[in-house]
Simulated assay, not measured.
Amino acid sequence: MSRLEGKVAVITGGARGMGAAHVRKFVEEGAKVVFTDLNEEGGRALAQELGENAVFIKHDVTNAADWDTVITETESKFGPVNILVNNAGISMSKPFLEMSEEEYRKIVDINQVSVFLGMKAVAPSMRKTGNGSIVNISSINGLVGGAVGYTDTKFAVRGMTKAAALQLAHLGIRVNSVHPGVIETPMVTEGDAVEMIKEFAKHIPLRRVAQSEEVSNLVLFLASDESSYSTGSEFVIDGGLTAM
């Protein structure tokens, strides 16, 4: 397995769930991976499991200085970055009229501002390689309506992806967005949403929610040279939901 042989990747939100699946897949395919999260316990356990080709860094994705540290440490350990997966994010389904300004700004900072900071921080490193791929994890709610806050930020990620793709193309950097539907991750399998998700799955054309590994296969394709002519595009993985 060597689709990412010789590549250096940074993956945010990599301690568990979909992010951890991306980390595992990339290491399996030959990449050197630095993955980040605020979840130190989960991050260090995953790094220990995967060995020398996976390094964990505690990282606040909303902090520009933290981003600079991540890129500097990645270059020091493995060399210039070829791949960035902006995976970190939170969900919030609080009714619009009950959401506070503080809550709204929190989801914007984590889901939207972090993507801007990550792309800006990694571009100089990617420029050294002349062969960069940025994969921004959006959502089907970046294509269709949903909860205020979450939907807003996922539409923004889609827009930033297109703008960045145009501005970074001359540096050999590609930028694409991935739009998952309902994925079986701790975000949806813990708490009050479990029964709702089970019921919702009955209305998905493929009649099930996706596994994290299925999204990782798409992210892998976009990170690899196999997608060398794809940039500024949306890649949907939703079991047919947005086709209805």
Results as ranks from 00 to 15, higher is better:
Ile134Trp: 07
Ile90Val: 15
Gly118Phe: 10
Ser138Ile: 01
Ser133Lys: 06
Arg127Thr: 11
Leu97Asn: 04
Arg174Gly: 10
Thr161Ala: 03
Asn82Thr: 10
Thr36Cys: 10
Val81Phe: 11
Val85Phe: 10
Ile137Met: 08
Thr36His: 00
Gly145Val: 07
Ala156Glu: 02
Asn53Ile: 00
Ala156Arg: 04
Ser177Ile: 09
Pro124Ser: 05
Arg158Gly: 12
Ile57Tyr: 13
Phe78Trp: 13
Glu75Pro: 09
Asp60Trp: 08
Leu166Asn: 10
Phe96Lys: 00
Glu98Ala: 08
Lys58Met: 11
Asn141Trp: 07
Ile71Met: 14
Val34Gly: 00
Lys94Met: 13
Ile90Ala: 09
Ser93Leu: 13
Val157Asn: 04
Arg158Asp: 11
Arg105Gln: 14
Gln48Ala: 07
Ser100Leu: 03
Asp109Pro: 02
Glu102Ile: 08
Lys162Tyr: 13
Ala165Glu: 06
Pro80Asn: 08
Thr36Gln: 00
Glu73Cys: 12
Val157Arg: 02
Pro124Cys: 05
Ala147Gly: 04
Leu166Cys: 10
Glu52Asp: 09
Phe116Arg: 01
Thr69Ile: 15
Met119Pro: 05
Gln167Tyr: 14
Ser139Tyr: 01
Val175Asp: 06
Gly42Phe: 06
Ala121His: 13
Ile140Ser: 04
Ser138Lys: 01
Val148Gln: 03
Gly130Cys: 02
Asn131Thr: 05
Gly43Val: 03
Leu97Cys: 00
Thr36Lys: 00
Ile107Cys: 08
Asp68Tyr: 08
Gly130His: 08
Asn39Asp: 13
Ile137Arg: 00
Val108Arg: 05
Leu50Glu: 02
Asp152Lys: 02
Asn63Val: 13
Arg127His: 05
Asn141Phe: 11
Gly132His: 06
Trp67Cys: 05
Glu52Val: 03
Lys154Tyr: 06
Asn82Gln: 10
Ser91Met: 14
Thr72Arg: 15
Ala65Val: 15
Ala147Gln: 07
Ser177Ala: 15
Lys106Leu: 12
Gly149Pro: 02
Leu143Asp: 02
Ile107Phe: 12
Gln48Gly: 01
Gln167Ile: 08
Ser177Gln: 09
Asp60Ala: 12
Val113Thr: 15
Glu52Ser: 12
Ala121Trp: 11
Ser125Tyr: 05
Ile137Asp: 00
Asn131Ser: 14
Thr129Tyr: 08
Phe56Glu: 01
Thr72Pro: 05
Asp60Val: 08
Leu168Asp: 08
Ile90Arg: 09
Val70His: 13
Asn176Ser: 14
Ser100Lys: 05
Glu102Thr: 15
Val81Tyr: 12
Thr161Tyr: 07
Leu117Phe: 13
Ser133Tyr: 06
Ser139Leu: 02
Ala65His: 14
Lys58Ala: 15
Thr153Trp: 04
Asn131His: 11
Ser100Trp: 01
Glu49Pro: 00
Glu49Phe: 06
Arg44Cys: 00
Glu101Gln: 12
Asn86Trp: 14
Ala45Tyr: 05
Ile110Cys: 08
Phe35Ser: 00
Asn86Leu: 10
Gly159Ser: 14
Ala47Ile: 02
